[in-house]
Amino acid sequence: MIDVNDTAPDFTLPATGTQDITLSELRPAPVVLFFYPRDNTAGCTREAIEFTESLAAFKAADAKVFGISKDGLASHEKFIAKKELGMPLLSDEDSDVCETYGVWKEKKMYGKTFMGIERSTFLIDGDGRIAKVWRKVKVDGHVAEVLEAVTAL
Rank of each mutant, 00 (worst) to 15 (best):
P37S: 08
I130S: 04
F79A: 10
G116T: 03
M87C: 07
L85S: 12
W134M: 05
I49R: 14
D96A: 15
D62H: 14
L123G: 01
H76L: 11
V31S: 09
S95T: 15
V137N: 10
K70D: 05
S120Q: 05
K70T: 13
D10F: 04
V65C: 13
R135Y: 05
L153T: 02
M109T: 01
G102N: 14
K132H: 12
V4E: 10
A61D: 15
V137M: 06
D39R: 09
A29S: 15
G102W: 14
F35W: 05
K132M: 05
K108H: 04
E47R: 01
R135P: 07
L13V: 10
D62S: 15
K132S: 06
L33G: 11
H142V: 01
E50T: 05
H76E: 09
F34N: 11
A63T: 13
K59D: 15
E93L: 14
Y110I: 02
V150E: 12
K112R: 15
P28Y: 03
T12P: 00
P28G: 09
A8K: 06
A74D: 13
K138F: 00
E50F: 08
P9Q: 11
T100P: 00
A56C: 03
M1I: 03
L26R: 09
D20Y: 15
T52K: 09
A81V: 03
D94T: 14
P30G: 06
I124S: 02
V103G: 06
A15G: 15
I49D: 08
I21N: 10
E93I: 13
D127I: 00
E77I: 02
K138M: 01
D10L: 05
F34S: 13
A8H: 07
L90T: 06
E118G: 01
R46L: 04
L33C: 11
E106N: 06
I49Y: 02
Y101H: 15
P30I: 01
H142E: 13
A74H: 11
K105H: 05
G102V: 07
L73M: 10
W104D: 03
N40F: 07
P14M: 14
L90I: 06
K59I: 02
D20C: 06
E118S: 07
P30R: 06
A81I: 00
L23Q: 07
G111Q: 08
D39Q: 06
K70C: 04
P88G: 10
K105F: 00
M109Y: 06
P9H: 12
T7V: 12
E99P: 00
D96Q: 13
D10W: 02
E84K: 14
V4P: 01
T7P: 00
V97M: 07
L147M: 10
P37I: 03
A61G: 14
V146C: 04
K138S: 04
A61R: 12
Q19Y: 02
M1N: 10
F66P: 15
K82F: 07
T7Y: 02
G86Q: 09
T7C: 03
A8S: 09
A60W: 10
A57F: 05
F79E: 11
G116E: 07
T12K: 04
A8Y: 03
F58T: 13
